[in-house]
Structure formats: structure tokens, C-alpha cells
Write a protein that binds this DNA or RNA. Structure first.
Lengths: 191, 191
DNA sequence: CGATTCTTTGAAAACAGTCAATCTGTGTGG
DNA sequence: CCACACAGATTGACTGTTTTCAAAGAATCG
């Protein structure tokens, strides 16, 4: 069931098999249908989400009702509202499955209770945060420095697998352009 | 000397006075001249920088030699290259003083060696990371959803103190617009 | 097959970037 | 103290890109 998650644990931090099994037992794997929401703005999120299979997107809605995708998460990636987790305040984000997906869910409290016994877990949590932060930093640079076409090219380079899997309007809201512009950029790209 | 840092420690985490004194003794305060660099790309950074006074900017240079400001840090804020700290790889960023400044420097190793004796330090480091991540997330949204004028307005709201303190071209490279565009946005703002 | 959603295309308008000139303030040397 | 140079900021005219609006063309699902 959660083989992909176990693989992830093995390859990123030097846990013992016994530790891995304890971590895995602390969570559950779950299926999500396409368009199913895992988190809705205004509610509390206590979950760390590890994507086993499929694609999730994290987005927020502005005052005009436009949706802005702030993160895309594919297999082997994490997806959590760090902020809501840390502060205990309701989330401003929504998390939705872009396709039928399987995820591994870890409750923050359960995870925290394991930390004293498995000191390396802290290292894992650090890694997760760093990964997210690094990605965010890179996106800020891309958003500032690139034209629509360059953004699309950069996205293809960083996420060759993802491009074909997600709807155009979602990718557009991720890149910060309008769907028509992205459609044109994509067309040029092919020539 | 480092009063502002001590205040910060007191108000953010419930350290004892003795712990605070141990933390403060682990670092040093230093003066920076305007335009002086605290970190240059290609070098290793082991420092956590707390701004006592003045303003720092973190930027990177692209292939065409353009500078892109990825962070601005004022009094009471942190400024560090998390990535270089965590991976031990040379930094891709530069950190520069925008004005004559005073900073409090903590070496990562020194800080790490205090953690076992002061468990709350982990909480502080979490807070720092979270703060940075939150800011990055917000900037991604602003970059995607806002026009030049709205970006400037949003910046004024979030950093009312900073706007007057930093040169226009730096702010422009932070907002992801050209300096002329920012100049015009600022003019409209006044009307 | 019809209905809905996603994508493409076109034309016009709004927006931001480029280039070049001017203006402003600051500091330096005569 | 003035004149000058210099860097930062503004302005104007122009170009190029992106958005907007509207319509038509695929693709998908029941």
C-alpha cells in the first residue's frame, strides 16, 4: 500500500527498519477522487500529506473569486499547510486532487509524539520544510524575471512529468498568467 | 549593544534569562557600512543574521547580470541562506547592507551546539523558517495576481516602514518590475 | 448523441518594458 | 561657496507583451 512512502523514508534519512515501521503505523493511506478536497479554506489542517500517486494542488481564492495555485505536488512530494500546522489557525488554502490519487496521511500530533523516540524525524521535517522553501524561492525569481513563455519553459524543465498531467487553467494560475496566454506560449514552444 | 535581539528572544519564546544570556554569548554584533556585503555568491554561509538596525537585501544575479532581490530584512528580522546552511553548499545569493546597519551574527554550528541544552531553541528556529516561508508564499501570490501598481500598494501595506528606506531600483527588483514602471506606479499612488 | 468542460484563436485594449532625455539631490574638488 | 560630476529618480514616446472579451473548436462524460 504505502511502499512508495517507505521507499522515500529509506532513501532520505537513515532510519532503522523498526523506526520506519513505527512511522508508517502512525499514518494511514487513502484514496482521493479527482476534484476531491483534502483541505478547505477556513478549516483546520493537522495533516502532513505525502503523495503516493497522482497530483494535488494547493490554491487560494482572492477577493474576486479567482483561484491561484501556490503549489503542485506529485508522487514522492509532500503537501501541507505549514502555517496552519504551526499556528493552529484555520487555513487560507485549499488542497484538491487533480486526478484520482493515493496519499499517505500523517497527523501532526501523532508525528510529534514520535519525535522523542526517533530523533531523526526532526531531520526529516527540516528536509521537508527546506524543500518547500527552496521551491518557493525559485518561483519568486521566475515570476519576477521571466516572460510567460520563459515561465512555461522553466516549468517544463523542472517538472517534465507534470506538464501533461494537469489542466491548462491550473497551470496558468500556477505560473501567474492567464490561460489564453499559456495556450499561446505552449503553441510557440512546439514550433 | 544587542538589546534589540534580547528583546526579540524574550518576546517570541519563553526562554529563561539564563538561556537568553547563553544564546547571546554565542553570537557577536557587528556594524556594516552601506553597500558592504555580508555574503557573496559562491562562498559558504554558516551565519544566521539578525538585523538590529538598518536594512539588508538578499539578491541573486541572472545570466544577463541583472540583480533580483529575493528578500528585504529590516530591524527585528532574520536573514540567512537556509539552503546553504542546510546543505553546506556554496550560496547562490548575495547579502548586502542597504544602509549603515548593525547586525547580530550567530554561527550555525554554535547555535546547533546550544540546542541540546536549550530545547526551546528548536522552536525558535522553526519560527524563523515559518516566517520566511510564509513571506515567500505570500510573494508568490502577489507576483501572480497583481499588477505593478497593486504590487506596490501591497508592499506599502506590509512594509510601511521599509518603503522610504530603500532605493527605487532595489524595490523594483524585489517587486519584479522595472524601475520606470515602479516610479510611475508610485506617482499614481500619490494622487 | 448532447452537454459540459477544456482549449484554442482572433482582435482590441491595457499594461509593462525599452530607450533616451531630463531632473534632482548629494558630495567632491577647485 | 560654487561648479561639477555622479547616481538615483522621473518623464515621454515607442514597442512588445499580456489581458480581456468573444467565439469557435476539441475532448470528455454520461
Amino acid at each position: 500500500m504505502s511502499e512508495a512512502f517507505i521507499q522515500y523514508l529509506r532513501s532520505h534519512v537513515a532510519f532503522s527498519e523498526e523506526e520506519i515501521s513505527r512511522i508508517v503505523r502512525a499514518g494511514v493511506s487513502r484514496r482521493l477522487r479527482q476534484n476531491q478536497h483534502l483541505l478547505t479554506e477556513g478549516t483546520l489542517s493537522k495533516l502532513h500529506v505525502f503523495v503516493l500517486d497522482g497530483y494535488l494542488r494547493t490554491y487560494l481564492t482572492d477577493h474576486q473569486g479567482n483561484e491561484w495555485t501556490v503549489r503542485l505536488s506529485g508522487p514522492g512530494e509532500w503537501c501541507a499547510d505549514k502555517e496552519s500546522l504551526a499556528t493552529g489557525k484555520p487555513s487560507i488554502f485549499n488542497i484538491e486532487a487533480l486526478s484520482d490519487s493515493r496519499v499517505f496521511l500523517l497527523n501532526n500530533n501523532d508525528l510529534a509524539s514520535l519525535v522523542p523516540g526517533i530523533p531523526l524525524l526532526d531531520r526529516l521535517l527540516d528536509l521537508m520544510t527546506l524543500h518547500h522553501f527552496r521551491a518557493a524561492q525559485h518561483r519568486i525569481y521566475i515570476a519576477a524575471a521571466c516572460t510567460a513563455e520563459q515561465k512555461y519553459t522553466a516549468f517544463l524543465e523542472h517538472h517534465p512529468d507534470l506538464a501533461g498531467q494537469i489542466p491548462l487553467n491550473v497551470l496558468a494560475s500556477y505560473l501567474g498568467v492567464v490561460k489564453e496566454t499559456l495556450s499561446r506560449a505552449r503553441k510557440k514552444q512546439l514550433v
